[in-house]
């Protein structure tokens, strides 16, 4: 199962999760886990999604979500989960 990790950091505002999850659905990516909090007015979220049925490649998705981040005014990084598996799982 191919997974991606989205890390979203920025100033908190209404609708960040709504817009991100909407975009994930648009490209047929399935959310597996969300971990989100607000610290001193800053929005932090780590979202894991499954992309086996996605309609775009990881490379394209990275650009799409970086652009969405700019529109919302937060930073969105999308990466293959493989790098986290390599670093934190033996």
């Amino acid at each position: 199962m191919q997974q991606v990790v989205l890390t979203i950091i920025g100033k908190d505002k209404v609708g960040i999760i709504a817009k991100v999850s909407c975009k994930l659905a648009e490209y047929n990516m399935n959310i597996i886990n969300i971990n989100q909090n607000i610290m001193q007015g800053f929005f932090n979220m780590v979202l894991i999604a499954e992309t086996d049925e996605a309609t775009v490649s990881i490379k394209e998705a990275k650009e799409i979500f970086a652009k969405l981040g700019e529109e919302i005014g937060v930073e969105i990084r999308l990466q293959s989960a493989d790098i986290f598996k390599a670093m934190h799982r033996i």
Binding site: N35, A81, H88
Partner: peptide, 17 residues
């Protein structure tokens, strides 16, 4: 396989900062 949020943020910080 799910990850600890701290681990994910650590990796991201290693790359960005």
């Amino acid at each position: 396989m799910l990850f600890n949020t701290q681990d994910i943020l650590e990796t991201t910080r290693m790359i960005t900062e």
